[in-house]
């Protein structure tokens, strides 16, 4: 027996919203979803008229929905923004090359300029080559650190004022959980912020317009709108730790859908007591990027790769930074610890 839309009471409802419990028809769902993102954007004052905004596009469901909704809201509400797509090519054969094809189609469909920055051109290493050297254990560390910086470099090249990313409510809740589990107070404090403060030269402010959008709704929005997106797991992926947090969160959601919003709410309202030691934000003395150490993570990882010592950037080797900066040779025992393990 069909359930009627609780908003218009005319058409057949197509989904039960996890956030509100309402049953909505397609048209009412689209409207509610879009206007909630609009509300998020307006309430948090994410953009100013005349700004150029880069949409970080991977070809996946979140960024495809983000690009679609940003384009639509920019027109509907006259934000006066100039939008572009920025993609990062990590150099993963059979995964990123396929998803970039999706991004290129999106570029046509949404009629937005597209900039692709690749790890190969920025760092001289593709993920394929990195995995060959480091194996499948810590490869996600390299990818994550490099991607963050690559997006910034792309944004600087395109001269955009801001970047928006497709992080959704589930992602944010997951990150809160992970930071609690890891005891990472500095990240716990900032991970729920909807936008980053301006952190200095070469770092473009970022924001998450889909921060309060449930993954279920994003997937169904893409499905009902028949958006063209790519959905394959990264071949090098299983980011195991996040996977557990994710499964746990999904289990909670199935019992109580508000869990996701509740975790975000907790994260947003935590305050860290005075006197808790926090890393001091500085800049990398090699590349000038933000860093709490003498060398930024990206430079250390890269140095490790180039020296054939890939574990240099994995774990804590801060005391070696001075040596690296002054180009002193490492001792044999230092080297041994940083060599790739056989796999």
């Amino acid at each position: 027996m069909p359930v009627l839309c609780s908003s218009c009471s005319e058409k057949r409802a197509v989904l039960k919203r996890p956030k509100t419990g309402h049953s909505l028809c397609k048209a009412c769902f689209f409207w509610a979803f879009e206007e909630e993102v609009h509300h998020t954007i307006v309430t948090a004052k994410l953009f100013k008229p005349g700004e150029t905004v880069g949409v970080a596009a991977s070809g996946g469901k979140d960024s495809t929905v983000l690009a679609h909704v940003m384009k639509l809201l920019n027109q509907r509400h006259g934000y006066g923004l100039e939008l572009m797509l920025i993609s990062v090519d990590e150099g993963i054969t059979g995964y990123r090359d396929d998803s970039l094809e999706t991004v290129k189609r999106n570029q046509q469909q949404y009629d937005l300029p597209l900039k692709i920055v690749s790890y190969e051109e920025l760092y001289g290493w593709t993920m394929d080559a990195i995995v060959k050297q480091v194996g499948l254990k810590n490869n996600c560390t390299f990818c994550g650190v490099f991607r963050r910086q690559a997006l910034d470099r792309g944004a600087v090249m395109l001269k955009v004022d801001k970047i928006c990313t497709g992080h959704n409510a589930d992602d944010v809740a997951e990150t809160v959980l992970m930071n609690v589990l890891r005891g990472d107070i500095a990240r716990l404090r900032r991970c729920t912020a909807i936008s980053t403060a301006s952190e200095g030269d070469g770092v473009v402010p970022r924001c998450k317009p889909l921060k309060y959008a449930y993954e279920k709704e994003i997937v169904l929005y893409a499905y009902f709108k028949k958006l063209d997106y790519f959905s394959t797991e990264c071949i090098y992926s299983p980011n195991a730790y996040r996977g557990y947090a994710r499964t746990f969160l999904k289990d909670l959601e199935s019992i109580r859908p508000s869990s996701i919003m509740d975790i975000i709410h907790s994260g947003e309202n935590l305050s860290v007591r005075d006197g808790v030691k926090m890393p001091v934000q500085g800049t990398c003395s090699r590349c000038g990027y933000i860093s709490s150490q003498a060398l930024c993570k990206s430079c250390v990882l890269l140095e490790g790769l180039n020296r054939g010592l890939p574990k240099l950037g994995i774990g804590k080797h801060h005391r070696l930074h001075e040596k690296l900066l002054s180009q002193q040779p490492l001792t044999e025992s230092e080297q041994r610890k940083l060599k790739p393990v056989d796999f």
Partner: peptide, 30 residues
Amino acid sequence: NDADWELMGELDYQLEDQDNIVFISTLHGG
């Protein structure tokens, strides 16, 4: 039939002729 199964009785829904069932996983990267 293109509607969230939470509206249709989930496990108790009695399948009928010509019904379309679609499974979409959200458990992968975006």
